[in-house]
Design a protein around this nucleic acid. Structure first.
Length: 646
DNA sequence: CCGTGAAGGACCC
DNA sequence: TGCCAGGGTCCTTCATGA
C-alpha cells in the first residue's frame, strides 16, 4: 500500500516473530503488547537473527516486485486489461458448481481437549501441549497469546501459570479414529486433512435422509460430542476451500453455513483477508499486500496488475479465490499418493563429527523402522541438516536400487554429510522418495481380487532382496491404490493455524560480493554458497485439474454426482462492447477475444514481440499465460553468484 | 525442446 | 536457568543429457 518507511523492517519483523497465526480463535487482548514480549524474548538469538535476515530478503524481494510493477503498467491501458480479465472471470464463473454440499470439520483445540479427557482437573486452566514448541494451547492459554508453533519458553513469559503438557500421540490417534469413524457414516469417502480435520460430501446423505445441510451438520457435531466428548466446528459450503474458511467462522464448537449462491459467495469473500485462504501464508500475504491486495475483494480491484504480473502472483488462482471457486471433489487418501517418508531430529548444536554421525544413525534407525512397518522402500535419499544459524540445507542422492535399511540409509547419509563437514548442526534428517509400495496389490484390478496372501505381517516378512530383483529401473510407478489403510494418516500434529517455517536458505549479505569467489569451493561446498538462490516464488497454486467444475472422473465408475453442466446457451453481455450475446462459452469467448484483439492487446503489448499468443482464454484448460509484456527483466533476482562445480 | 535430478522454499497440520 | 518441531506436499529454478 504505502511506501515502506524506515520502521517497516522492524514492524514486519515483529509481526514475523509473533508468528503466523495472529488471528486465531480465542483472540488475545492486546496483540501489540504480546508481540512486544515475543520480540523482546527473541531478540539476539540465532533464531531471531535468521528471521531478521529472512525478513530483509523478503523486503528486498518486494522492492523488486514493485519495481517490476512500475515497469509493467507503464504506458499500458489498464482499463482494457481489466476488461479482458473480466472475460476470464466470466469463464471461471461458468465453472462454478453449487451442486455439492461440502463440509469441513475441525476439532476444537484437539490435542488440548483430548488431554482434558484424560485429566479433567485441567478444565478452565491455561495449558498447552507439545515439547519445545507448542502444538496446541487451551483456550484459556490462548487468551494470553499462547498459540501453536510458539516455543514454550516464550509461552511461559506470556503466561507464567501456563501448564505445559507433553504430547500423547496414542491418545490423539485413538480419538481421531473414533471421530473419523463417526464421520464416515455421513460420507464413507471422507477426506482426512490431518488428524483433527477433514472434508465430507454430504450430498448423498442429505438426499437419503431428507435433511437440510444445517440439520445434518448439527447432528454430526452432536453425535461426535456425545460419543467422544469432544467438540467440533464445521463449515458448510459448495467447495472445500470455502468450507474450510467457514469452519473457522464460528470456531469454538460452532458451524457456519454459507449461502449456495454465487453473489453471496463473492460478497462473503469480498472482505475476507487474503491470508485466510488456504495456500496463502505469511510470505504471499506480504507480497500481495505490497501491490494493494489485502482482501480477496482487492484481487478484483487490482486485477489488471495481477494480470500483468501473473508470473509472480498466479492470476488464475487469485481470481478463483476471489470468486470462491475451488474443488469439491472429496475423496479418501490412498496409499499410492504417498510421495516420501522421513525422519528428523533437533538437538542442541553439535559440531563433532562423531556426535553428528551418532544422530544420523539414530535418525536412520528411526526411518528404517518407519519404512519397515509402513511397507515402503525408495530410491532417493535426502539428507537434511540445519546449521546452528537455522539455515536449512538438503543434499540428495538417487540410487539404482531400493533402500529401507538402516545401514544403507546411514551410509548414504554419511556420504552426503561428509562434504559439508566442518560445521555445526542443530538438526539432522533423512527422507526417502521415489517410493515403491511393498503393500501394493500389484497391477490393475485382478490381483486385488486374488488377494495376495501378503497380509500386513507387520512388514517384517519380505525383505528388501525380494524386490531388488524387481528391476530397479522400473522405478517408474507401479503403485496401485489399495486398502490396507492401516491407521496412520498423513500429518499428525495439530497445528491450529500456526506455522513456524524455520527453513530458509540464508544467503549471507555479501552474497553478491562473492560472485568472484575463488576456487574455494571446488572441493567443498560451503552450505551458504548453494546454487539456486533465486528467490522467485509465486502464488501459483495452480489447481491442476482440480476444478470445481463437473467432477469428471476418468472412465471409472465413480459416483459422478450431479453436476451443473453449464447451460450451453445463455445470455451474456460482452464486457467490452456491452453487446448482448446468446451463445455458448466458446462463441462468447471468441467474441470477446475479437473485441479485445481489436486494439487492447496490441496497445498493451506495444513492442512486446514474442510470447504473447493470442490469449485465447476460451478453453478452461489452457492457462492465460500471456505474460509477455515486460518479460525481459522479469527475472526477479539478479543471478546469484555463479557456483562453480568442482 | 524435454524429461529428470537436485536444492531451496512456501505451506499445512 | 536452558534459545523456536516434525511429517509431508507441491512448486520453481538450474544444470544436464538425449
Amino acid at each position: 500500500m504505502d511506501p515502506v518507511a524506515s520502521s517497516q523492517l522492524t514492524e514486519s519483523l515483529v509481526k514475523r516473530l509473533a508468528g503466523p497465526s495472529t488471528g486465531k480463535a480465542g483472540l488475545a487482548k492486546d496483540q501489540t503488547e504480546i508481540n512486544r514480549i515475543i520480540a523482546e524474548a527473541s531478540k539476539g538469538s540465532k533464531f531471531y537473527e535468521n528471521e531478521k535476515k529472512k525478513d530483509k530478503d523478503l523486503t528486498e524481494r518486494i522492492a523488486r516486485i514493485l519495481k517490476l510493477r512500475g515497469e509493467a503498467i507503464e504506458g499500458v491501458d489498464l482499463t482494457k486489461i481489466e476488461h479482458h480479465v473480466d472475460k476470464i472471470i466470466i469463464d471461471l464463473e461458468n465453472e462454478r458448481d453449487l451442486s455439492q454440499v461440502i463440509v469441513h470439520f475441525d476439532m476444537d483445540a484437539f490435542f488440548a481437549n483430548v488431554e482434558l479427557l484424560h485429566n479433567p482437573t485441567l478444565k478452565g486452566k491455561p495449558f498447552s501441549v507439545g515439547g519445545g514448541v507448542i502444538s496446541t494451547a487451551s483456550y484459556e492459554a490462548r487468551k494470553y497469546g499462547v498459540r501453536s508453533g510458539m516455543p514454550s519458553f516464550i509461552a511461559k513469559k506470556l503466561c507464567p501459570e501456563l501448564i505445559l503438557l507433553r504430547s500423547h500421540f496414542e491418545w490423539y490417534n485413538e480419538e481421531s479414529n473414533k471421530v473419523f469413524t463417526i464421520l464416515r457414516r455421513y460420507d464413507p469417502r471422507l477426506s482426512a486433512a490431518g488428524c483433527d480435520e477433514g472434508y465430507l460430501n454430504i450430498t448423498p446423505y442429505l438426499q437419503k435422509h431428507n435433511l437440510t445441510p444445517g440439520e445434518c451438520v448439527e447432528e454430526i457435531r452432536r453425535t461426535v460430542h456425545a460419543e467422544t466428548n469432544l467438540t467440533v466446528s464445521a463449515g458448510i459450503a459448495p467447495n472445500m476451500m470455502l468450507a474450510k474458511i467457514c469452519s473457522d467462522k464460528n470456531k469454538p464448537n460452532g458451524q457456519y453455513h454459507l449461502a449456495f449462491d454465487s453473489k453471496a459467495i463473492i460478497d462473503f469473500m469480498g472482505d475476507l483477508s487474503i491470508r485466510k485462504v488456504p495456500g496463502i501464508g505469511r510470505v504471499n500475504e506480504r507480497l500481495l499486500e505490497s501491490v494493494g491486495v489485502k482482501t480477496c475483494g482487492d484481487v478484483y480491484t487490482h486485477r489488471a496488475v495481477l494480470y500483468l504480473m501473473d508470473k509472480q502472483f498466479g492470476l488464475r488462482f487469485l481470481l478463483r479465490t476471489y470468486l470462491g471457486i475451488a474443488s469439491n471433489e472429496v475423496k479418501p487418501y490412498e496409499r499410492n499418493e504417498r510421495k516420501s517418508i522421513g525422519a528428523e531430529r533437533t538437538f542442541p548444536p553439535l559440531s563433532s563429527t562423531k556426535d553428528m554421525l551418532d544422530k544420523l544413525e539414530e535418525v536412520a534407525a528411526e526411518l528404517e523402522s518407519d519404512m519397515e512397518s509402513s511397507g515402503w522402500i525408495g530410491r532417493t535419499v535426502t539428507l537434511k541438516f540445519k546449521l546452528d544459524t537455522f539455515q536449512v540445507f538438503t543434499r540428495a542422492k538417487s540410487l539404482n536400487h531400493w533402500v529401507n535399511k538402516k545401514e544403507e540409509l546411514f551410509a548414504v547419509g554419511k556420504e552426503l554429510l561428509f562434504p559439508e563437514l566442518p560445521t555445526s548442526v542443530r538438526l539432522i534428517g533423512l527422507r526417502v522418495t521415489k517410493l515403491k509400495d511393498l503393500k501394493a496389490s500389484t497391477s490393475e484390478g485382478i490381483k486385488r481380487f486374488f488377494g495376495p496372501a501378503q497380509q500386513a505381517t507387520s512388514g517384517s516378512k519380505r525383505k528388501a532382496s525380494d524386490i531388488d530383483e524387481d528391476e530397479a529401473d522400473d522405478a517408474s510407478v507401479d503403485q496401485e491404490e489399495h486398502d490396507s489403510d492401516d491407521d496412520v494418516m498423513p500429518g499428525f500434529h495439530e497445528q491450529d493455524e500456526a506455522d513456524i517455517d524455520p527453513s530458509q536458505h540464508d544467503v549471507d549479505d555479501d552474497e553478491e560480493l562473492q560472485i568472484i569467489q575463488p576456487l574455494a569451493n571446488i572441493r567443498k561446498r560451503p552450505p551458504n554458497s548453494v546454487p539456486g538462490t533465486s528467490i522467485s516464488h509465486q502464488l501459483t497454486l495452480r489447481s491442476r485439474s482440480k476444478s470445481a467444475g463437473p467432477s469428471r472422473s476418468h472412465g471409472a465408475a465413480i459416483a459422478e454426482p450431479s453436476t451443473t453442466t453449464s447451460t450451453p446457451s445463455e445470455t451474456h453481455t460482452c464486457p467490452i462492447c456491452n453487446e448482448a450475446l446468446t451463445s455458448n462459452n466458446t462463441s462468447l469467448n471468441e467474441h470477446i477475444d475479437y473485441c479485445l484483439s481489436r486494439d487492447a492487446i496490441k496497445q498493451a503489448q506495444g513492442t512486446s514481440t514474442k510470447g504473447n499468443k493470442v490469449l485465447s482464454s476460451g478453453d478452461t484448460t489452457k492457462e492465460y499465460a500471456l505474460n509477455g509484456f515486460k518479460r525481459l527483466k522479469l527475472r526477479p533476482d539478479p543471478p546469484v553468484k555463479s557456483k562453480r562445480k568442482g
